[in-house]
């Protein structure tokens, strides 16, 4: 599914052409930014030299690897993304405490189950982010994606009510991910 990068405005205003020129010389701005930050962390210094070299690498590497990124990633609701990251970080901590508690209580109390989550997400990025989020958050590990990409098989460590778990996953993680990465695509 190869599409041209989605531009926010269809009208051919000067801003449209300016944006297109920017897109042409920097096809993946988010990737460039992350690569620069990665480089700064790797050399562990914030000197001007490291910054220039990092920015140069961040600018050039997306061109060299552009075949791996057929779809341009765009974030539609930064506010929702920030809230999602907050919920995610909190759930990692909560999940670890919960799993640690269950392990210490002992195996006899566990009610493990396989649960199928019907997916509303469509894109590769959305599905992989959801699967990874599920694996890091309370008591669940994503196990398998069905061949038609409609169902995600999730193993849960301890549940009494699988339907509530599915509803929680959909409401807590899938809805924000859809808003951030896919709204308007479907």
């Amino acid at each position: 599914m190869k599409r041209l990068p989605q531009l926010p405005s269809r009208k051919k205003t000067p801003a449209f052409y300016a944006l297109r020129r920017v897109k042409a010389c920097m096809p993946h701005p988010l990737l460039s930014l992350s690569l620069t930050v990665l480089w700064l962390l790797l050399v562990n210094s914030f000197s001007a030299g490291a910054l220039v070299l990092g920015a140069l690498l961040g600018w050039l590497i997306p061109f060299a690897t552009s075949r791996f990124w057929p779809e341009a990633i765009s974030v539609r609701h930064p506010g929702v993304l920030l809230r999602f990251l907050g919920v995610f970080a909190w759930d990692i901590v909560r999940g670890s405490f919960q799993v640690a508690g269950l392990i210490l209580l002992g195996p006899a109390r566990l009610r493990p189950a396989f649960v199928e989550v019907p997916l509303a997400l469509k894109t590769d990025l959305g599905i992989s982010l959801l699967a990874n989020t599920i694996s890091l958050t309370p008591g669940t590990v994503s196990a398998q994606l069905s061949a038609d990409r409609q169902l995600l098989l999730v193993h849960t460590l301890n549940t009494d009510d699988p339907a509530a778990l599915v509803a929680e996953i959909k409401q807590r993680y899938e809805t924000p991910l859809r808003q951030i990465f896919e709204e308007g695509d479907a």
């Binding site: 999940g95 670890s96 799993v99 269950l102 566990l110 694996s135 890091l136 590990v141 196990a143 460590l157």
Partner: peptide, 18 residues
């Protein structure tokens, strides 16, 4: 300690990572 592979998977994924 846990009794089957799928439950064992949870410990290293979450607790050890954190």
């Amino acid at each position: 300690r846990l009794r089957d592979f799928y439950t064992r998977l949870h410990g290293p994924t979450k607790a050890t990572t954190l």
